[in-house]
Write a protein that binds this DNA or RNA. Sequence first.
DNA 1: AGCATTTGACCTTC
DNA 2: GAAGGTCAAATGCT
Length: 281
Amino acid sequence: MDRGNKGKSLVSGGHGGSEMMEAMRRQQELVMQLRALVLPLLYAVDATSADVAVQLFDDVIACNISVASKIEGFLMMMTTTGAGGGPVDDLLDDKSLVRKSNSTTTAGSGGRTTEQAKPNGVGQKRRRNDKRSRSLVTHVPHYDGHQWRKYGQKNINGRQHPRNYYRCAYRERNCLATKTIEQQERNTGTSSAMAGEESAKYTVVYYADHTCKDYSNSMSMAQTPRQHVNMDLRNGDMVQTTTNAQEPEADLDLPALLEVFESSLINLDDWNEDMISSSPV
DNA sequence: AGCATTTGACCTTC
DNA sequence: GAAGGTCAAATGCT
């Protein structure tokens, strides 16, 4: 439904800062995808080179984050001092942003009350128009450098394909990152089902940031967890799971992985707002 | 046996 | 009340 778009505030185009943030974010995503592609293969060939690659990737990401934070600071200054004013007005125009934090105190009607209102936010509902979300369109929704565990699937009203819900596999480390993956409507004129699957695009929406990053990085330095990429035949979906398989994966879909660099579209409408709303106080 | 996924129920938001 | 998001028991897989 268009419910999710109802409150979608618009960052007016042409803001230099927004464009820069867009580029930085896109760069981050692409580096993460490249990291997920290269490291498993490299570890299978030469662990030493792989360690160097890990450092290089981390350095690139660190540089990116550094620049992004500077831009963020600049944007913050512009908005809090009232200069420009546009983005702030847009944000306040969104009802979801005004949504109070006291809604958490109302949790307590059903049978799971205390279990659900956990202090770390686990069990709290998120909305599709959550301002902290970022979306990505890709052919390979599972190659993002993180391990995910599926926890739900829903048929969405009026959609051809169900929406799949994933949370970070390191949730026990208080990593609240989640994402949803939804296959986009198939293009008309597709002659065969297989062709349709192969060219399928997925909308991936990320919620919250990974707080398990340090852990995964340190793990990759010492012993990169082997990742298995399996084909979920029922959904035509690839599932990346964390296992301790001994053999290097031979089932990585390289063409599909490479394709992501040509086809990924990052929808950054919300990212600028995200940076503003989630900035430290 | 242990772990991940599936799926129906429950809860929150709109 | 409908729709979306999450939980958790059941199920399947390795």
